[in-house]
Computed example of a mutant assay.
Amino acid sequence: MADLYSTLGVKRDSDEAAIKKAYRKLAKELHPDRNRDNPAASEKFAKVTQAYDILTDKDKRARYDRGEIDEDGNPKGFNFGGGAGGAGAGGPGGYGRGPQGGFGGEEVDLSEVFEGLFGGGAQRRGGFGGFGGFGGRRAPPPQKGADTVYRLAVPFEDAATLKEQRVTLQGGKTVSIKLPKGVEEGAKIRLAGQGQQGGAGNGDAIVTIAITPHRFYTREGDNIRLDLPISLDEAVLGGKVKVPTVDGPVMVSIPAGSSSGKTLRLKGKGFTGKSGVRGDQLVTLMIEIPADDPELAGFIQSWSRKGKGNPRAGLGV
C-alpha cells in the first residue's frame, strides 16, 4: 500500500494547510460524481480521503509516523519471528539448545511460558512442536475487513433540515444516509458492513460530514443568522417583505421606524438540535441608502433643518 504522504502528493513535513490544499485538489478531480464511468477514480478517491483523515488527525498522524498504525489506521501486527540476527527457534541465537542459545547452553522448554502468554493449547513435543507459531503452525484467526473512509459535502440548507443524503461507495454502490439530530461539521456516520471484505466479515464505511458554507446564512449554535437588506421607505414606513429561510421564503412584517441593526426572530427556522427541537433564524435589518438620488438628498436637507436632534448624544459626543 502506498505511503499516505505520497498518496496525497505532499512531503512528510507538510503542515495541515498544505495537506488540506492537496486533498481539495485531488478530491475535486477524483470525486465519484465526476467519474461515474471510472471505478478506478472512485477507488483512488477513497484512498486519498482516508489519507487525509489520518494525516489531519494529530494523534493518528503521530502514531502513523512512529509506525504504530498502517495506512488503513489499524494497529500494525506483532511479528514474532527469530531473535537477534534473524535466527529462528532452535538455531544459533534462537531459543533452543546450543552454545549460542541465550540460556547458558541448557535446553529449555518454553511451552509453559507460551501457554501462559497465549492461552494454552500447546502440545509438548520436545520444544515448540505444539505451539501455533512453530512446528505445527496454526493459521491465524480470520480478520474483519478494514474500514473505508469517505468525506461527504452536505449543503447548508440540507444540514439544517436534516435532508437525506446520498453517498457513492467504493465500487460504485450508492446508499442513502440520514443525518443525525444536531449534526455538525466533522460528524462521523458509520455504515455497518460497507467497508472492505474480510474472512470474519466486512469492515464498515465511516462517512465524515463537511457542511458547505452558505453565501448569506451563518450558523450560531442551533440558530441561523441573516443580514437582510431593506429600503429606506420600508424602514421608515414599515411593511411586509419576503425573507429567505432554509425551508423556503416567508413573509415578515417590518415595524415602522426600524433602524439598521434591529433583529427579528423567526421561530423554528434554524438547525435541528440534538433534542429534536429546531433553533431560530435571527434576521438583522440593514437599511440600504441609494446613491446619487437628488430627490432624496433634497428631502433630507429640508428635513434636517427642522432640528431633529443629535442621535449620538447618548455617547457623549
Rank of each mutant, 00 (worst) to 15 (best):
G307L: 11
G136N: 15
G171N: 01
A291N: 15
L179Q: 01
A27S: 12
G276L: 03
G127M: 13
G268L: 00
L315W: 05
K25E: 13
Q100W: 15
E115A: 09
E220P: 02
I209E: 08
A205F: 00
R190H: 12
E29R: 02
F128R: 14
D15W: 03
Q196G: 11
G130K: 02
G135K: 03
L110E: 06
R138D: 15
Q100G: 07
A84Y: 14
R63E: 06
G9I: 01
I189A: 14
P39A: 08
F103V: 05
D33M: 02
E71C: 09
E106P: 00
R36M: 02
G257K: 06
G129H: 14
A256T: 05
V48K: 00
P249A: 10
D70A: 12
P140H: 01
T168W: 06
K306G: 14
G132D: 11
Q143E: 13
V243K: 01
I254H: 00
I287Y: 01
K76C: 06
G104H: 03
I287N: 11
G135C: 14
S253L: 14
K188D: 15
A139E: 12
P141T: 00
S42A: 11
T148R: 07
A210R: 10
I287M: 13
S42C: 06
Q197I: 01
S176H: 05
G9E: 09
D70V: 07
E29V: 05
V10S: 12
G102S: 06
E234A: 11
E295T: 14
G171M: 02
K76Y: 07
G96T: 02
T174D: 13
S275W: 04
E164P: 02
P255H: 05
R36F: 04
A87D: 10
S304H: 11
A210Q: 10
S6M: 06
L152E: 01
G193N: 07
V48N: 03
G309N: 07
M251L: 13
K173S: 12
R151N: 10
A291S: 15
F156Q: 07
A27N: 07
R215H: 08
G195S: 08
T263I: 08
F271P: 01
S42G: 11
T245C: 10
H31D: 04
E16I: 00
Q143A: 13
M286E: 15
G238Q: 03
G135N: 10
S231K: 02
I211S: 10
K178Y: 09
G98C: 04
G98A: 04
G98D: 01
A187K: 06
V10N: 10
F299P: 05
H31P: 00
G116P: 02
G186F: 09
R137C: 14
F128H: 14
V183K: 04
D37F: 11
I69G: 06
Q197R: 10
K47V: 01
S304L: 13
F299Y: 10
G133V: 15
G73D: 12
A192N: 12
G316Y: 07
P142E: 03
